[in-house]
Amino acid sequence: MNVSRKILLHTSTVASLIVGTLILTEPAHAVEPTSNGRGASTEQVGGGKKAGIYAAARIQYSGSVAKGGGTGNVTSSDVSWTPPPCWYAPYLSAKDFKKKMSKDIESTKNSPGMTGTAGAAIGEMERHYEDGYGWTDTPGYKDYNIENDGKGMFWAGVENPNEPDYLKRTSCTDLPFWVENGEAPPPQYEEAISPEILAALAYQHMELPDTKVTLAPEANTKVNLPTWAWLDKAVFDEVQATAALNVPGFNIQATTTARPVSLKLEPGTKDAETYPASGECVINADKSIGEPYAKGKADRTPPCGLKYFRSSGDGTYKLQATITWEIAWTGTGGAGGDLPDGTFGNEQAVTVQEIQAVNR
């Protein structure tokens, strides 16, 4: 943080009480299934109705996305990586911003205890937007920049509602700032919405298909009998999710693509072994995983599968089948890159009987 923005810090604390941060809300309309049947098109809107003013920021998700996004959809294999906790996005036009700020500042000034440092901060912020008072890289505005109404928008902080850490979620505390239509936000606002941020949000909202592997024997397997496991290519394909922000003079989007690369089998007990020994079954050339069991393969070792050494008794073992997905993104202006691999899986109940048998 540079010097001028440090000066703004105490003013921003008061500003957060006056302006508030935009919070992504639940979609205002019903979610409709997409053509691939694996997800839903939905949108989440920044801000909302307050005093007759609507925030303009709107992120729309499409493709294979889960309503609301967040936990449970895809988990990053890189524990240090998380989607952005907050960002800056278009907020209000000059006229709407003036209307809202003028009302909120006046209300706050008349609140009990608004003296001393707090009162000075309010006055400083009022001068910033009304009288052109600014800092080194933070210019002030005359009459809320009304003369440029329609030529740009004021941007403000947006919280990611799926970020559990409140301090991270509310860390975009800089005062709302003006961005001309078609122009990029000033470089000091590193958290300004961008194709890369949209790609990370699409990642967070992505809904992947359930990982239910086909087993042979299908219902009950036997102790010391190799159990074959596989996934057909028809149910094991890449998944895409897109996030887009479209407001006057500023339109960007990013598409995140998840491509399956391997299947990890965990038997649910130490009394078992996997094939291969690592339990990691790689994808085949035809985009399938493993090999279907067929008559005559009983004496062969399955390329993907497992063997149990002990009966499950009156219960079952919880076989965990997890797919690793390679994830990349492309966005507006030719931007793109890789994101951390994602994992997604579920449990399957496996009954193991204490009967020696051979699959013929």
Rank of each mutant, 00 (worst) to 15 (best):
A120E: 15
V14E: 09
A30Q: 14
G46Y: 06
K212W: 04
F309E: 11
M153Y: 14
G334S: 10
G48D: 13
L339M: 10
Q253Y: 05
G46N: 09
Q60F: 01
G152D: 12
N148H: 15
T227E: 12
Y317F: 14
S62A: 04
G279K: 12
L22A: 05
A321K: 09
A321Q: 13
A272P: 14
Y88L: 01
D271F: 10
A94K: 09
I122L: 15
V31A: 09
S262W: 12
A285C: 02
C281P: 01
T324D: 08
A200E: 15
T351M: 07
P186M: 02
L167R: 15
T138W: 15
H205P: 01
E191Y: 05
Y275Q: 04
S171H: 12
V79M: 10
V358T: 08
V3Y: 09
R169P: 03
A202Q: 03
S102M: 08
S288H: 08
A216K: 14
G70D: 11
A254V: 03
A30T: 05
K233S: 05
D104G: 01
T343L: 08
Y317I: 02
G47E: 10
T301I: 11
R58Q: 09
G249P: 11
A120Y: 15
A89M: 13
G182T: 07
G140N: 13
S76E: 10
S278V: 02
S62T: 03
P83K: 10
E180S: 07
K49W: 14
P195Y: 06
G315A: 07
W87N: 02
G182L: 11
F97E: 03
M125C: 04
I197W: 02
K99L: 05
P302F: 02
S107A: 14
V352M: 13
I53T: 06
Y275V: 03
P248G: 00
E183N: 13
D286M: 01
E126I: 01
S64T: 04
A15Y: 09
